[in-house]
Nucleic acid binder design. Structure first.
Lengths: 237, 237
DNA sequence: AAGTGGTCTAGACCACGCG
DNA sequence: GCGTGGTCTAGACCACTTG
């Protein structure tokens, strides 16, 4: 996991994030970086391309690479970030309440959503996310038992992602997110502080492993006024 | 613009999209592709990495590259796609009504948003997007005159993006999107068929050129029940 | 052991921006 | 003309999967 280009990438990311590299300044040229890090140009280019992809820099032909200030103000919620990682970043008091945690036989809906056979069992986890004394987000997670044999309340209160990746060594590959706005349900109103909102923002998340097997289905239900999604996109030709 | 790896990428994309390459099947190995296309391995790898980035394939170490079926069902609205490109893809009757088109002196709000000096003038375009006889989306565009000297009603009814990229030769580099849900305004209610919804989904778009200069600010205001945002994300380590 | 993708290297030529 | 990033090549070694 510790490739040269990732180490260089991470070094530059932290330099940008803690202000050592200021926005709108020019990075050293690829040639200079080659010498600084004692690696080939291709390795430097891999690191720089990652930086560009993630919105840290912009490369301009004939001129150089420049530090952007996009990521400074707003961190992107796009990409795959868990609630724990997120709340650590925004640095606000937050809390997770586990309402349900059980191993269930999936119904029609889940069999379709998770691409299951009838015998497969599924962990159902229902959690409420509290941010600054308000119950804002209702998370409903469904994970295949096949991949996650055991799940405890303590794990759910901390971070399921962390447990899966670090303890079980399962590698998340990619995910598809679908965001819609729908009518709130009785369940939403029971668990959340909705304050009269009858709409709810739903982020449906289909999580796949590295080997392309579908692993988890999650619904993240947000109170509309507290929802905010930031995305960084490059035009691809 | 016509690099080898882009040609290979595009060939494979169309092969996947029209079903010649079926999902869950294996692509030829990088070595085989090298021979098929008569290029070096690096060139093949660039094409495959693009495919992976855009959710077409998944590469698995030691096994090969596999076609995903993500893009088949849902096209991602993530990334930078104009309304015209989008409506062509979903293939439904759609229509654009231009309500305002004028060169204005920017107010405080715009000066801050677009990073302007006081003399700069700005094109303001207000358009309603009609899909299947319903007025669903209100688009408010603000473009710097410095970059776009002329704008006509015809251009706005077609596609501003297309005009800018093809006619003016301006290269869009990247964009930052912020999605929120807010109270609808009087303007929303006047122009759109809101059917009693008092919330509105707002996609704020900050568009930058290749040379990192901020170029355009757009607000896309959607009726909640018709809004849908699809995102494909890879976990980055 | 053979085949796969992942990383790294060294060298070449090109297109672009700028002085 | 020089320095910049963009593309392409050829070859090497590694880590992983599968038979």
């Amino acid at each position: 996991m510790n490739s040269k280009y990732l180490r260089i990438y991470n070094e530059i990311v932290t330099a940008i994030e803690n202000g050592k590299l200021k926005s709108n300044t020019k990075l050293p040229s690829e040639n200079e970086l080659m010498n600084q890090y004692n690696v080939s140009r291709d390795t430097i280019r891999k690191a720089l391309n990652l930086l560009a992809q993630n919105g840290y820099i912009q490369k301009v032909r004939g001129k150089g690479s420049f530090v952007l200030d996009i990521n400074r103000f707003d961190f992107p919620v796009s990409g795959l970030v868990s609630f724990k990682e997120l709340s650590e970043k925004i640095n606000r008091k937050s809390n997770t309440i586990v309402h349900e945690l059980e191993l269930i036989r999936p119904d029609e809906f889940l069999i379709k959503r998770l691409d299951l056979s009838v015998e497969d069992k599924v962990w159902k986890v229902v959690r409420v996310r509290e941010i600054g004394d308000e119950k804002i987000i209702l998370d409903k997670d469904f994970l295949k038992e096949k991949f996650v044999p055991l799940l405890t309340k303590t794990i759910c209160e901390d971070s399921i992602y962390e447990y899966i990746e670090n303890k079980l060594g399962i590698k998340i590959g990619f995910a598809k997110k679908v965001i819609t706005v729908e009518e709130s349900t009785e369940e939403d109103r029971r668990y959340l502080d909705l304050e009269g909102y009858n709409n709810i923002v739903i982020v449906r998340n289909y999580v796949y492993l590295d080997d392309t097997s579908l692993f988890q289905y999650t619904e993240s239900r947000h109170r509309p006024d507290k929802f905010r999604f930031v995305d960084f996109a490059r035009r691809s030709y």
